[in-house]
Design a protein around this nucleic acid. Structure first.
Length: 150
DNA sequence: GCCAACGTTGGC
DNA sequence: GCCAACGTTGGC
C-alpha cells in the first residue's frame, strides 16, 4: 500500500485539529506536483502528518485517505485565500482528498532527526530547498520512521 | 525576522 | 522559448 507525507502549518491546522474533527478535506494545495500526487492517493493509504513553519518542526502523527481526489471547492470561492480566478469550473484545476485521523504522537519526531537518518536521505522533505508539500514515502522509509518514532 | 531557494508569471 | 522579476515557502 502506498504511503505519503503531508505538510501542514499547525497554526492553521494541526494534528490536534484533525484529532478533534476526525476528518478533513486537504484543501488549499496549489502546486501541480503536489496535486498530481494527491490524485494518486487511494482509499486507506496512510499519511504522515508533518508540522512545518512552527516551533517544533517534524512529523506529528498519522492519518489516512478516506476520500479520493475530487475538486477543491475553495478554488471557486472568492472569499477564500485559496481562490483561483483562473480555474475553470468546467475543468477544475485543483483537487483535494479527505484525510481521517489515525494517531497523534506523544512528541513530534523532529526534522533534525529525520535529516540525521541515512535511510531517509532520498525524501524530498530532508533535501535543501525542497518545498514539496505532498510527497510519496517508500515502504522502507515508512517502516524506518515508524522504528524511530517517539 | 531573515533570507535562500523555489515555482510561476509575463514581456520580449 | 528564454529568463528576469516577483511572491511564497519554510528552516533557522
Amino acid at each position: 500500500m502506498p504511503y505519503w507525507l503531508l505538510k501542514t502549518e499547525p497554526d492553521l491546522f494541526s494534528i490536534r485539529d484533525l484529532a478533534e474533527k476526525n476528518t478533513t478535506p486537504w484543501d488549499g494545495v496549489r502546486n501541480y506536483q503536489a496535486r498530481n500526487f494527491m490524485d494518486q492517493m487511494r482509499l486507506g493509504d496512510r499519511v504522515f502528518l508533518y508540522h512545518s513553519s512552527c516551533k517544533e518542526v517534524g512529523i506529528a502523527g498519522i492519518g489516512e485517505v478516506v476520500r479520493e481526489s475530487y475538486p477543491d471547492v475553495s478554488q471557486f470561492d472568492d472569499k477564500s485565500p485559496y481562490f483561483d480566478p483562473k480555474s475553470d469550473p468546467a475543468k477544475p484545476r485543483w483537487r483535494c482528498v479527505d484525510i481521517g485521523f489515525v494517531e497523534s504522537w506523544p512528541k513530534v519526531l523532529p526534522l533534525a532527526r529525520l535529516k540525521s537518518e541515512a535511510a531517509l536521505a532520498d525524501m524530498p522533505l530532508v533535501q535543501k530547498g525542497s518545498r514539496l508539500s505532498v510527497m510519496p514515502v517508500t515502504d522502507q522509509q515508512w517502516q524506518h520512521i515508524l522504528g524511530i518514532k517517539p
